[in-house]
Design a protein around this nucleic acid. Structure first.
Length: 424
RNA sequence: GGAGAGAUGGCAGAGUGGUCGAAUGCGGUGGUCUUGAAAACCAUUGUACCGCGAGGUACCGGGGGUUCGAAUCCCUCUCUCUCCGCCA
């Protein structure tokens, strides 16, 4: 969330910038300022009364020790009204605090100045388009049919065991998944990221820290009996490693990577674009996460984009990079670049990565700070993350683009990882 | 699942109603000494909020209560550990 201080110092700026996200923040910003001001007034009065109370209590203690019980009891009488006043102020203070947090969590992150305005994904800005469009052979078919033809993914079995959106990978399909995971993790390690194997289920505090809760809880599978959530991305556990942490400036940037299965309910997204591997309830992904100095986070974002570029290039997939417009930008992000690969049989661009700078928005929720060298006061760090990469759509594009009458060719970089060069 | 123990500052670990934001040790930082280092010694060392400032307030797992006063007593929740059972 945004800091109260920033909102109070720049209310017009916040409203103006959030308009780019098509978000009318006027009322919320006004409310935050008003509630915060009232809260401060209450605190001043409350603290004053508490100071007096503390002082009287201390005196009473001394009087008792000196054996002056009568005077002590007289002093006690004075405390009743004070006590009552404090209680009331505390109550109102608590209410204002809840209200303030409620309003704050409803205000999205401010978009970076480079974010184009726009309503939907149609307004995203194409930054780069690279790679050769594949020439498909006669009778080319989409990946869901290829997967069945070569018996590497069993859709029906997934339906039987769990339900739609939980495919079963078999034989070379399963091995190719494993190869992709290892390939991505090794690449990330070579790029300086430390590998993490996180829990796949998180508590409420973690969900709040990265911004999934309270608003987007419908997106996650909720284990109500234990009040735990299945992760929609490794971003959640890996970023929450640094919840309530004060880092040394010298330790920045922190670079972590993690493979995880990801679980998404995708409620309300039935219909188009859900065939085959295009949208699943469970999928595999390797994520990269960085914690960086505020002054260096955009430089880091560029580096992360450059890194993801190398991955799609090595896989030989035609890709394009989009700068998300305000309307398509997520609630918590300040700037996001999406990667899409071209899936030739579907004749569709498929999103395989989303690389974002959250600036201090997540950090403020997480209380993730660093201490500038030689200084006393901790400062909020910046967090960034990106998919590197999400597997299903990569697999879809690989299957469709590399199909030949003899079978599906495996990209060279993956051959050492999976141990075969052809799915036939 | 059954029984028990516990949750205190970066860590370890005292503290069972009143100058306790909290002893002590370790660690960290600064300094003295030293050619340099180690050792020793001295000093310092949490976070947040309010206030122009002086300063004030809060925080000893979370929440509630008793009391003039709570780390300390009571209730409640959560979590951790140990033993037994079960089990990859």
């Amino acid at each position: 969330m945004l800091s109260v201080k920033f909102i109070k110092e720049n209310p017009e700026f916040v409203v103006e910038r959030l308009a780019v996200k098509n978000f009318d923040a006027k009322e919320l910003v006004d409310a935050v300022c008003a509630i915060s001001n009232r809260k401060n007034e209450i605190q001043q009065e409350m603290d004053q009364h508490k100071a007096e109370m503390n002082s009287i209590s201390k005196q009473i203690g001394q009087l008792f020790q000196q054996g002056k019980a009568e005077e002590a009891n007289a002093a006690k009488a004075k405390t009743a009204s004070l006590k009552e006043a404090i209680k009331e102020l505390e109550k109102e203070f608590g209410e204002k605090d809840v209200e303030l947090t409620d309003k704050l969590t409803q205000i999205p992150n401010i978009p970076h100045e480079s974010v184009p305005s726009g309503k939907s994904e149609d307004d995203n800005e194409v930054v780069t388009t690279e790679g050769e469009m594949p020439q498909l052979c006669e009778g080319a078919i989409p990946h869901w049919d290829l997967a069945t033809k070569y018996d590497i993914i069993d859709w029906e079995l997934g339906n039987k065991i769990t339900g739609a959106g939980f495919p079963v990978y078999k034989g070379k399909g399963s091995r190719l998944q494993r190869a992709l995971i290892n390939f991505f993790l090794d690449e990330a390690r070579d790029a300086g990221y430390m590998e993490i194997m996180p829990p796949l289920v998180v508590n409420e505090a973690s969900g709040f820290g990265t911004g999934q809760l309270p608003d987007k809880e419908g997106q996650m599978y909720h284990i109500t009996e234990d009040n735990l959530y299945m992760i929609p991305t490794a971003e959640v556990p890996v970023t929450n490693i640094y919840r309530d942490v004060i880092l040394d400036e010298a330790n920045l940037p922190i670079k972590n990577t993690a493979y995880s299965a990801c679980f998404r309910r995708e409620a309300g997204s039935y219909g188009k674009d859900v065939r085959g591997l295009n949208r699943l309830h469970q999928f595999d992904k390797v994520e990269i996460v960085q914690v960086q100095h505020p002054e260096k986070s955009y430089e880091t974002l560029d580096q992360m984009v450059a890194y993801v570029t190398t991955l799609v290039q090595k896989l030989g997939l035609p890709y394009r990079i989009l700068r998300l417009c305000g309307g398509d930008l997520s609630f918590t992000s300040a700037l996001t670049f999406d990667f899409e690969v071209y899936s030739a049989a579907q004749e569709k661009w498929l999103e395989v990565s989303s690389v974002s700078n959250f600036e201090a928005y997540q950090a403020n929720r997480l209380k993730l700070r660093y201490r500038p060298t030689g200084e006393k006061k901790p400062v909020l760090a910046h967090t960034l993350n990106g998919s590197a990469l999400a597997l299903p759509r990569i697999l879809a594009a690989l299957l469709e683009n590399n199909q030949t009458p003899e079978g599906i060719k495996v990209p060279e970089v993956l051959v050492p990882y999976c141990g075969f060069d052809m799915i036939d």
